[in-house]
């Protein structure tokens, strides 16, 4: 009797997660219907975002999300892979432990703090070097890169560490250098895991709000250069959700939220179900 009740409690809790996810999609979809019916495809292809005219085109925000995350990936991936190589192959045990834990702890620092640092310390540097406002795509890309770096480096290192020692030793036994072993053995062996880790970090970067909201500006225009302020989906949501004053405005914001959810869902699913699963099967 109690056994059955306990079982049902646990099962209901487990099913709840599926219910919540489905519910999120349904709610976001329902609330964005009005915008979809009004604008159709124009919603994602037009960049006119004019609340006073009740016109909402999310093109600039979507583009801003894509460019800022691409920029962040371009900057973060080479450094993260370098850090991962350093942590898994180069550093001596003591440094490895200390540095490895530091990286993991830095990954836990709230992103609002990265954003705040970016606003007060990095934006002025960009302003001094390039002129202009300082806030914009470049600042957002760099701050996002720094914020995602610890997580990316930590998971990439974990992927590299799955390479069996004996396989590395076999390459050393043939006269390989450390770099030979890294590029010929570790990277090919852990390829699926490394790519999966990088894409997973990308999935997080797309949805990241606070690190970029401080430094992106919030201008619904397709930027002329990466120095211009623009917006992205999370930035628009963070800035405008509490200001929306018409039902179409709200609906458009929900449409943005749905777009963001789908984008990150797809990216994370590809990372998890294609690459990381393949990596797990291989090892």
């Amino acid at each position: 009797m109690i056994d059955k009740i306990f079982f049902n409690f646990t099962r209901l809790s487990a099913l709840l997660i599926l219910v919540i996810v489905a519910w999120i999609f349904v709610v976001l979809f329902n609330h964005s219907l009005e915008a979809m019916n009004t604008f159709g495809l124009d919603f994602i292809t037009r960049d006119e975002w004019a609340p006073n005219l009740d016109k909402f085109g999310a093109y600039a925000a979507i583009l801003g999300s894509i460019i800022s995350t691409t920029l962040a990936m371009l900057l973060a991936v080479p450094i993260a892979v370098g850090v991962a190589i350093f942590l898994s192959e180069i550093a001596h045990d003591k440094i490895k432990g200390f540095f490895g834990v530091s990286v993991e702890l830095l990954a836990a620092i709230p992103s609002v703090i990265y954003g705040m640092w970016g606003l007060f310390y990095f934006v002025p540097i960009i302003r001094d070097i390039f002129g202009g406002l300082g806030i914009g795509l470049l600042a957002a890309g760099i701050v996002l890169a720094i914020m995602i770096l610890p997580f990316m480096a930590a998971v990439t290192r974990d992927a590299m560490n799955t390479t069996p020692d004996i396989l590395k030793e076999s390459a050393y036994a043939l006269g390989g250098t450390q770099w030979d072993v890294i590029k010929d053995i570790i990277i090919p062996y852990a390829k699926a895991g490394i790519i999966g880790s990088l894409i997973l970090a990308l999935g997080r970067a797309i949805g990241e709000t606070m690190a970029v909201t401080f430094v992106m500006g919030n201008v619904h225009h397709v930027p002329g250069s990466i120095l211009d302020p623009t917006t992205s989906i999370p930035v628009t949501l963070a800035n405008e959700f509490t200001e929306a004053d018409s039902s179409l405005y709200f609906s458009s914001l929900f449409g943005l939220a749905l777009t963001l959810l789908i984008m990150s869902f797809v990216v994370i699913a590809v990372a998890k179900f294609y690459f990381l699963r393949k990596a797990r099967r291989a090892s």
Binding site: I17, L18, V21, V27, L28, L200, T209, P234, A257, F265
Partner: peptide, 22 residues
């Protein structure tokens, strides 16, 4: 359930905010 919750763990938290708002 494991797969879905793995995805949820990395899903944009601002979207959860929008959902709860609704």
């Amino acid at each position: 359930i494991r797969d879905i919750s793995d995805i949820m763990m990395s899903a944009p938290s601002i979207v959860i905010g929008a959902f709860v708002y609704a």
